[in-house]
């Protein structure tokens, strides 16, 4: 039964100046016992808390506890000319927190998420069960741009 169809990812959103595209981020692990500077991203490794990181892609990581959680996330890239306005609509993350190489966990439209800076936008990791709701929110937010 190996050909279990990968759960259909939500289709993207293309508003005026806003693009939301699902990302097949590969395998993802939650790893405890790994230290790294707070709120930084290095080589697919995202800081979550002291001694806890999210590892995206690459080989199976080492750590005190390693849990594969790729299925627990939907990864979305939010870009387009006015992505900053979507971020401003969704939460109060300080601008400086999302320079490339930085990441932050924050409330985005009331939903707790991991966000990483990319050139031309942000990559968000949202809990799968909340992804449908978030996409509804993003769809509506995108209609606010003329």
């Amino acid at each position: 039964m190996a050909e279990m169809a990968a759960a259909g990812l939500a289709e993207g959103i293309a508003g005026a100046g806003v693009r939301v595209t699902p990302v097949e981020a590969g395998r993802i692990w939650l790893v405890s016992g790994v230290e790294m500077p707070a709120n930084t991203v290095a080589g697919g490794q995202y800081w979550l808390a002291p001694g806890r990181v999210l590892v995206v892609g690459g080989a199976v990581p080492e750590g005190a506890l390693v849990s594969e959680v790729g299925d627990g996330f939907v990864v979305l890239d939010i870009g387009g000319a006015r992505w900053r306005e979507i971020l401003a609509m969704a939460g109060t993350l300080p601008a400086g927190a999302l320079e490339p190489g930085m990441c932050a966990q924050t409330l985005f439209a009331g939903v707790r998420m991991l966000i990483a800076g990319r050139d031309g936008g942000i990559r968000v990791f949202v809990e799968r069960p909340l992804s449908a709701w978030l996409l509804d929110w993003l769809r509506q937010a995108a209609t606010s741009f003329v």
Partner: peptide, 10 residues
């Protein structure tokens, strides 16, 4: 102490 200044709802 880890993430820096954030707003009250968090």
């Amino acid at each position: 102490p880890y993430c820096g200044e954030r707003d009250e709802p968090e």
